[in-house]
Amino acid sequence: MTATRRQVLNTGLAAAAVFLGLPRLASAQDVDAAIAEFTGGAEAAEEGVTLIAPEIAENGNTVPIEIDAPGAEAIMVLAAGNPNPDVATFNFGPAAGSQMASTRIRLAGEQDVVAIGRFPDGSFKSARAHVRVTIGGCGG
């Protein structure tokens, strides 16, 4: 059987998509799965949570971030472009003075960092910050 020019092109495109696209897709699915596990599938409004991260991080091994979600009972932080998107989950107790925390995280490369806050009324709010990383932090 002789393949037409169009068939050959389509096959090539599909192969390229599989080759280039799958790792990213898998990661995006991981992120969605992690978010769904935290929110139980509820929609997260893009407000009410502050995520402070540098626009450019020189060293991906220690990227300072700060999260603030007044009134939240828990905040989950995800790094969408890491091999494993989970970063940390902060649960605030009754003696917490505010729903704010800062820490230092590892980022494998340029990517979005996502913070999702869970509120006592069952709602979820999220914030997103794009970080460019000069040297990746996963020992690659």
Binding site: A79, A88, G93, T103, I105, G137
Partner: peptide, 10 residues
Amino acid sequence: IDVTLEPAIS
């Protein structure tokens, strides 16, 4: 505060 840490913490 009660924090769950993953390997992405520095």
